[in-house]
């Protein structure tokens, strides 16, 4: 069944949010969500990298791995491509956009190991998306991840000022909030579904 790319785009932001439905990319999601500013910085970087690496991985998969019947190697290859791309991106930014490099650049190394990036690339393969669909899915996935982390950071900034039982402080509380956020997002599932 062919799904309209626009549907994929919005679905991956709201109803199939990579964090809130798949719980991927959790470690930086929990760690960098203490303040809004940092989480938005990381969110932007993820949007950017996820969109481009999904396309790159689509091309590598379609034109190298499939013809050579090496689909089973996609895990390794995808990771190498993501790592190399992030490295290259860092250099390009430093040279041509130093301002952006200093705001975004410090988050880039953290993204190489963000499993949401790899997860999106792998889902793209499993769901047999076309080029345009992959593009929509990559961009939507990134925006969805950024939305989730910024929302969590906003909530945590408020909650930090109140008293929480000792055992729940930090990640414990963040996970509970994430769970509630995930349930809230279920309310949107009538809009579109791609899974």
């Amino acid at each position: 069944m062919y799904i309209n790319p626009i549907v994929i785009f919005f679905a991956s932001i709201f109803t199939s949010n990579i964090v809130l439905t798949n719980f991927l990319g959790m470690c930086s999601y929990l760690a960098i969500s203490r303040d809004l500013k940092s989480s938005w910085g990381l969110g932007q970087a993820v949007i950017f990298v996820m969109t481009i690496t999904t396309i790159l991985n689509y091309l590598v998969y379609k034109y190298i791995l499939v013809p050579a019947e090496l689909e089973y190697l996609r895990y390794i290859v995808f990771i190498i491509v993501v790592a190399a791309f992030v490295q290259l991106l860092e250099m390009v930014l430093e040279r041509f956009m130093p301002g952006l490099y200093y705001t975004l650049g410090i988050f880039l190394p953290l993204i190489t190991v963000n499993c949401a990036i790899l997860g999106v690339a792998l889902f793209m393969v499993i769901r047999e998306y076309t080029f345009i669909q992959s593009l929509a899915y990559g961009a939507g996935g990134g925006i969805g991840w950024a939305l989730a982390i910024v929302a969590l950071a906003g909530i945590r900034e408020k909650v930090d000022e109140t008293k929480i039982p000792k055992g729940l402080q930090g990640p414990g509380f963040a996970l509970i909030v994430t769970g509630i956020m995930a349930m809230a997002f279920i309310g949107l599932s009538g809009i579109a579904n791609i899974q």
């Binding site: 190298i64 050579a68 491509v81 290259l88 250099m91 430093e94």
Partner: peptide, 26 residues
């Protein structure tokens, strides 16, 4: 052999790209 060489080729290509980028960009 083909598998190894394709993986190696991808790796070498990306490494070469990064080296070149470093040479010219930095």
């Amino acid at each position: 052999l083909i598998t190894t060489s394709i993986i190696t080729a991808i790796g070498v290509f990306l490494a070469a790209l990064l080296t070149l980028a470093e040479r010219f960009l930095l």
